[in-house]
Design a binder for these strands. Structure first.
Lengths: 228, 228
DNA sequence: CTGGATCCCTCACGATACTG
DNA sequence: CAGTATCGTGAGGGATCCAG
């Protein structure tokens, strides 16, 4: 048994031994979007030391979560991708992401938003029920980051970059989490200018039906900030 | 921003900053069963150093996941319990647990099974759909650990200890994960004696309809053991 | 330029002892 | 019972260096 094992015959404990190390689930998050090279992962996780990234990738490969694959010639480069088993982490990553976004608050000065994290966030918050029989597309811009979402009869496809033909363009900043929890009313958000729209305004309400999270629970008296 | 922050404006990253430290989610797991005293938590997590447990509880309290409460006289003792926000981690804990149990394998020599982890495992794998209109009760014994489950029209209640009136008593060992993934056939499990029943045999198949996890994916060539 | 490996420093974790 | 104090170890953080 490993030195740092939890020593419990328990699915959660075993999962944490495989993907509970620091940075591991963020690597899985980025790989859920698609295969990536070492440098791509570095770009999406700028604060990870390269030795830690290399170590995590080896551990995840050993745990059959990640597969290291050498692309055929002439590319010849190395990509990391999730195994089928690793892709099975998607529900857990989505659930943790939905929980975390409830108390995300405003971005700190050094916090950055990546395209992949936004793609995963949209997929995590998509509710297929109200999307049945619906066909609509959105372009979402948050700072430099632009993604688009195609909804087609209960199915969602999220891609990076612009989509000129989108039914509605949404441009916003850090207000998005408060919008998604229902903490911020869409009408007042537009009125105050924290959300700017390009297209029919009523499609924003539709957007919030399709993408949502449980509302932030009432404060229980404990301090929830991150200062230590 | 904290020194060890991930520096990402992302729900998953924020969640990992709150409950991603070592032992944190195992503490949450035990508190999902009910409020506990410091010593109760120690008993359920025998390998956690007491200072780490104390540190985690303070961090979780600060993150509004856990609430420290002094019981009214004459008890006067201290209990830790999940806040509403902390209880919102249940779907994430269940999803991670379901993923981890797929590759749990056999228990190591030092691995132990606790009552609370078994209770959470059953709740995590319960499927309410086949339970509609159904009323049945089970007693489950794995080594020293005994719990019981009451299913009543889509609702599940799991409690610790024996239930003499249970419709079926199931006594097994480490074979349970393989049974739940479908990797091990219930008939052969009974025939080989790794599962012993007390009651109508066909209720075991019913049990596996009510409690199940996605089957373990086919091996992809990577080694999945834990030796380092 | 990609894909890492190596070094050093710090701090979190782990084990144990001890206290109100 | 409910933690705190102390100390050793090893993992993470950051910078740099190197091979293909």
């Amino acid at each position: 048994m490993s030195k740092r094992a939890y020593g419990q015959f328990c699915g959660l404990a075993h999962a944490l031994e495989l993907v509970g190390e620091r940075w591991a689930l963020l690597i899985v998050r980025d790989l859920l979007v698609g295969p990536k090279r070492f440098t791509d992962l570095r770009r999406g996780l700028p604060r990870i030391p390269t030795n830690v990234l290399a170590t995590r990738l080896k551990e995840l490969e050993h745990a059959a979560v990640v597969r290291r694959r050498v692309l055929p010639r002439p590319a010849g480069s190395v990509v990391y991708e999730l195994t089928e088993h690793g892709a099975g982490l998607e529900p857990a990553v989505f659930a943790l992401g939905r929980w975390g976004i409830q108390t995300l608050g405003e971005p700190g000065p050094g916090d950055l938003l990546t395209v992949d994290s936004l793609i995963i966030a949209l997929r995590a918050m998509f509710d297929p029920e109200p999307a049945r029989g619906l066909r609509v597309s959105y372009q979402l811009r948050m700072g430099e980051v632009v993604v688009h979402a195609l909804i087609d009869d209960g199915a969602l496809e999220v891609g990076r970059g612009e989509l000129a033909t989108a039914d509605l363009g949404i441009e916003t900043s850090a207000a998005m989490p408060r919008l998604l929890t229902g903490e911020l009313d869409p009408a007042t958000a537009v009125a105050e200018g924290v959300v700017r729209l390009t297209g029919p305004t009523d499609l924003l309400a539709r957007f919030l039906e399709l993408f949502h999270i449980p509302p932030t629970p009432k404060d229980t008296g404990a301090t929830a900030d991150l200062s230590r």
